[in-house]
Amino acid sequence: MFHWLEKNPFFFSVVVFVIIAFAGIVEIFPNFAQQSRPVIGTKPYTTLELAGRHVYIKNSCNACHSQLVRPFKSETDRYGDYSLSGEYAYDRPFLWGSKRTGPDLLRVGNYRTTDWHEIHMKDPASVVPGTNMPAYKWMFTNIADINTAFAEQLTIAQFFSVPYNTPVPMKDGSMAVVKMGKSVADAHALALAEARIIVADMKDQGVKDAVASGQIPEIVAIIAYMNGLK
């Protein structure tokens, strides 16, 4: 049979394809629906958080930082509860990473704060001597792309029924609503409102001035994102 296949490239290719496609079908599809159901307490990203997530991706933070707490005592001691599938229901793309040059960040919002991030992102070695994390000074001047974040919100709400402007259940039994703007201007206003809360805890005057004048530097967005990682 193999000799025959080797003389008939078409059938040879078909057989190869079937063999390699087969595993994919068995492995990927059965659990697709189940895996993506959100657990209680998981909400969609706000506009500013999403913009921050884009900054995170743009700078490949995931090259050094994972967002996946594995079920080992040593990891839950260090980072908090192990990951649950449903916690990632709104993560497009997922950001588990594959290398921990730096620590896991899945729950960093639980144990680091705005002012600390501000100093750390500006100059990591000043707070953590010996770190090899780069300094991200330009984030203090680059302006975050709220428009694209908003476009993404619109897209996922439309195509994947992500529940914006809809109550979602929280762990304490309450309901939370994540708002999405009706228009670009509206989205900017929402993001700015969030940004003001963050800059209140920041020290960098340039950043404070920018937000006061209605612009949101990348650093504010990424801190909003990291504070939300819980």
Partner: peptide, 8 residues
């Protein structure tokens, strides 16, 4: 500044 909780 701001110190987080440590309920962990």
């Amino acid at each position: 500044g701001d110190m987080p909780k440590f309920d962990r």
